[in-house]
């Protein structure tokens, strides 16, 4: 289902320690234009749950949270366009 969506940008934060997965994602989203889609690849369980909360709080839209192999996850977020 989410394969149909082509992300504008991909951010790989696998292996990063707390809270860099969230921080890197939020700063990247901040610079993206409205409607652009960010693909985040992460493996840190706390961030898999916290990142969608933070993204929503800043007005971004979480399109999907997909579990891959092991702790790996793929989250698609549509940017709100904070820079616009």
């Amino acid at each position: 289902m989410t394969d149909a969506i082509t992300p504008t940008k991909t951010l790989d934060v696998k292996g990063k320690i707390c809270p860099y997965p969230d921080m890197d994602t939020m700063t990247t989203l901040k610079k993206m234009k409205k409607g652009e889609i960010l693909e985040v690849l992460l493996d840190y369980p706390l961030s898999v749950e916290r990142l969608p909360r933070s993204a929503k709080k800043w007005g971004h839209k979480v399109l999907s949270i997909e579990a891959l192999e092991g702790p790996n996850h793929r989250i698609l977020i549509e940017a709100f366009g904070l820079k616009d």
Binding site: C18, P19, D22, M26, L46, R50, R53, S54, K57
Partner: peptide, 13 residues
Amino acid sequence: SAFRDIVVLKDYT
């Protein structure tokens, strides 16, 4: 995370 998220991510979970 509990203490830091209050100021960094404004997450209170």
